Simulated scan of single mutants.
Amino acid sequence: MKRIGLIDYGMGNLHSVQRAFERLQATVIPVHDAAAMEPCEALVLPGVGAFDPAMARLESSGLADATRSWCDAGRPLLGICLGLQLLFEASDEGVARGLGLLAGRVRALPRTPGHPIPHMGWEPLLPATPSPLLPAGSPEAWVYFVHSYAADPTDPACTTARVDFAGQAITAAVWQGEIGACQFHPEKSGAAGQALLQRWLHWLDQRQEPGA
């Protein structure tokens, strides 16, 4: 049974994420500091709220540096919603420095008549670069979004899925190295979201630790 560390910095929908993984037979370990990461095989960085307050909490608790060290060591992490945005270098939403684990900036969604912000509701994913989250040939997946910002990666190849917003294909999920992340909420996306989390857990089962 996989031991998944759920990073708790006071701004995540932790209960629904925890329940989603427990339904898939994973053990979920609350992570409030670096020491709590040690027994974990992978981390999940959730998030609901604004970029700057989230980064302030991560930095003040020591979780920001601990998460950077974790990923620098080649250990796996999955970001969800704001958790995806925090992986990047900066955001239009504030002035704080992000975790900087992925190159690029989080940008405000375009304001277009007839397309309210936040972007909220069910949308189909548009496949991009295949990844363990969304392998080539994956079935169509409708997933649930609530967001006002979207990542703009420096390397477009790290985008594994996009979604249409106001006629523009914006980032919906990323994958680079051992880091994956979803702008949408897989834990609230029914069977499609459960299948995505199951694929991530299966990838954890199949991967080898660095140096193994």
Results as ranks from 00 to 15, higher is better:
M1E: 13
G5T: 11
L6C: 08
Y9D: 06
G10N: 11
G10P: 12
G10T: 10
G12K: 07
N13W: 09
H15R: 15
H15Y: 15
V17R: 02
V17N: 03
A20K: 07
E22V: 11
E22W: 10
E22K: 12
R23G: 07
Q25Y: 12
Q25R: 14
A26C: 05
V28I: 14
A36C: 07
M37N: 03
E38S: 12
E41L: 06
A42D: 01
L45G: 00
P46T: 06
G47Y: 03
D52C: 12
P53D: 03
A54P: 06
R57D: 10
R57E: 14
L58H: 03
L58Q: 02
L58I: 08
E59F: 07
S61K: 02
L63N: 01
A64T: 03
A66K: 03
A66E: 03
A66Q: 04
S69G: 15
C71T: 11
C71N: 02
L77I: 15
I80H: 05
C81T: 02
L84G: 00
L86C: 04
L87A: 04
D92C: 08
D92A: 13
E93L: 12
E93G: 13
V95F: 13
V95R: 14
R97N: 14
R97L: 14
L99Y: 04
L99T: 04
G100K: 09
L101P: 08
L102E: 02
A103Y: 06
G104W: 12
G104K: 04
R105D: 14
R105I: 13
P110L: 13
P110K: 10
T112Q: 11
P113M: 11
P113T: 13
G114W: 03
P118H: 05
P118Q: 07
M120C: 10
M120I: 15
G121C: 10
G121N: 11
W122Q: 09
W122M: 06
E123Q: 14
L126I: 15
T129Y: 09
S131N: 02
L133M: 11
S138I: 11
E140W: 07
A141M: 14
Y144N: 04
V146R: 05
A151S: 08
D152T: 13
T154E: 14
T154W: 07
D155M: 12
D155R: 12
D155A: 15
D155H: 13
T159A: 15
T160S: 05
V163M: 06
G167F: 01
G167C: 01
G167I: 01
I170D: 00
I170A: 00
W175A: 08
G177T: 06
E178N: 14
A181Q: 05
C182K: 01
Q183D: 06
P186F: 01
S189Q: 01
G190F: 08
G190N: 08
A191T: 14
G193K: 01
G193T: 00
G193I: 00
G193N: 02
A195G: 13
A195R: 11
L197E: 03
W200S: 00
L201I: 10
D205G: 13
D205E: 15
D205C: 10
Q206F: 09
Q206H: 12
R207W: 04
Q208M: 10
P210D: 10
P210G: 10
